[in-house]
Design a protein around this nucleic acid. Sequence first.
DNA 1: GCATACATACATTCATGTATGTATAAATCT
DNA 2: AGATTTATACATACATGAATGTATGTATGC
Lengths: 206, 206
Amino acid sequence: MARRTKEDALKTRETILDAAIDLFASKGVSSTTLANIASQAGVTRGAVYWHFSNKEELVESLRDMVLEPFKTKQAALDDPDLDDPMGLLFDTQLLFFKNLQKNKKLIKILKIFLIKYENSGDLEQVFVEKASCHLHKIEKLEAFLKKAIDKKQLPETFDTRMGAIAIISFIDGLIHNYILFPDTLSCKTEIPKLLRGLFNMLRTGL
Amino acid sequence: MARRTKEDALKTRETILDAAIDLFASKGVSSTTLANIASQAGVTRGAVYWHFSNKEELVESLRDMVLEPFKTKQAALDDPDLDDPMGLLFDTQLLFFKNLQKNKKLIKILKIFLIKYENSGDLEQVFVEKASCHLHKIEKLEAFLKKAIDKKQLPETFDTRMGAIAIISFIDGLIHNYILFPDTLSCKTEIPKLLRGLFNMLRTGL
DNA sequence: GCATACATACATTCATGTATGTATAAATCT
DNA sequence: AGATTTATACATACATGAATGTATGTATGC
């Protein structure tokens, strides 16, 4: 049998992607072969090579699946004049975790890139940099914090460099924790509390 | 030429380990071959196989190089009666970063296990669990925080579960940040400030 | 003389990539 | 509308290289 309909083809493509997600998240990217993915998806390597030119392209497809949602959110953060920068930052971060909570597949993909994929060369951690809404680049976050200072939401003497590092580190750690133990952190209670703790720390402590 | 003296053998063993560290840290574990390591070390695969039975054993040797220093420190934290738990916790974490600062090789090895190694199976993150002085196990950290409550260093109403998560996440994030950009964080100024901020957050905020 | 500390050579597996086959959906022609 | 053609969506088969593991050689310190 061959040449299914156009919709059938899209379906197998997604089946292959799902198989890849599961295997990558459990065995790691480099130790899962395209044959593994094919058999898990119930197809042959021929199908995999038809939809993706190689494993790297498969990985990049997964990467896009996580990054795309943030592209839209990023625009709001780049807005030059905001009346409540810190509030927006808080909401954005909370929204990130809410999305994770209701999308189990997203968690798996994040897991792949955070602990199941060996990034190489200078591009290392490129993904993680963008993971929490593209603010992961320290410079961008610093610029954003300066807006908060302008709006009197942070003290004049605030050290933006250290503030940026504190935010990135804390969020990063929370993401790692969430990925390993999703059940220990609820977006209704724990996450907001922790984020509020972080933001209080920024306002009061140095 | 063959059969060098006993000290020579130990020297080549360390040369091989150093080569492995460099290659693993730059290319990732799975994409560096034993032939790569051998040539980088100036020996043949025969030498590598003489000292290590395979790549996995090499990786575990590196793991031991990082974990061993913590074994000793852990004993102090397990002490049932301490008069200054939070102080000890602070000092231990700071010492961790100080060790990183003066041991460039340690940073590389940490980098390998944090972002250049795809952990598989249920043992995933075993290393990371132990990275910050074995306190990474939430239960252990919770028990430790209870000691701090007993000593009135934390409020009676303190949520130890969330406190543990906050500490682990923040430290984890700082470690990741330090590994990627060691120069942005000094153990003399930034790290103590950030740790103090964390500890203040625990005392005051929720 | 024997175990050591390697180097060299060989055999095997295994994942990849590509080439080819093929049935059928879809487009084109009449 | 039916017949023919063509591109599609795979399955199958094959060829290749690369990494591994092991076996063997060998010089030398002990």
